[in-house]
Amino acid sequence: MPPPTTLRTITDALLRSLLPPVCQICADCGEHDRELCGACSLTLPWHSDGCARCALPLPEDADDICYRCEEAPPPLDACWASLRYEDPVSGLLLRYKFHSDLAAGRLMAQLMALNPPPWPLAPLVAVPLHPSRLRQRGYDQAAELARLIGAPCWKGLRRIRATAPQSERNAEARRHNLDGAFGVVGEVPQAVVLVDDVMTTGSTLHACAETLREAGCQEVNAWVCARVP
Rank of each mutant, 00 (worst) to 15 (best):
G38N: 06
D197Y: 03
I149M: 06
C208G: 08
S48N: 15
T163E: 06
L114C: 07
M199R: 03
S48K: 13
C40V: 02
R16Y: 07
P123R: 03
E210F: 06
L56Q: 09
L111E: 01
D49F: 02
N115Q: 09
W119I: 09
L107E: 01
S132D: 09
L42I: 00
E187Q: 13
V185D: 13
D140H: 04
V127L: 02
R161P: 10
P59M: 12
V184E: 06
P120N: 11
T6H: 15
E71A: 14
L157K: 06
W119T: 03
D101K: 00
A126V: 07
G30M: 01
Q218F: 04
E187C: 07
G186Q: 14
D63Q: 14
L19N: 06
F182Q: 13
L19E: 09
I65G: 09
P117T: 04
R159E: 04
L19D: 07
C51D: 07
C217G: 15
A143S: 11
Y85W: 10
L44R: 02
P131L: 07
T211S: 10
H47T: 03
T163H: 08
L42V: 00
M199W: 03
G105I: 01
N170M: 11
V228G: 04
A113I: 02
C51S: 10
A78P: 08
L111T: 00
G38K: 00
P74G: 15
F182M: 10
P117Y: 08
T43Q: 12
L56K: 07
C54S: 10
P57M: 06
E60K: 14
D197T: 02
A173K: 13
M199T: 04
V195Q: 02
L83I: 01
R169L: 15
L94A: 04
Q110I: 02
P73N: 06
A103Q: 00
N115M: 09
D197W: 03
E60W: 13
A62V: 12
A173I: 08
F182C: 11
P152I: 01
R213D: 10
A207C: 13
H99G: 01
M112P: 01
A78T: 05
S17C: 15
V89F: 02
D179F: 14
D87G: 05
D49G: 08
A113M: 08
Q110E: 07
T163I: 10
N221A: 15
G186I: 03
P20A: 12
D49C: 08
A146Q: 05
L58C: 05
L7C: 13
R213I: 14
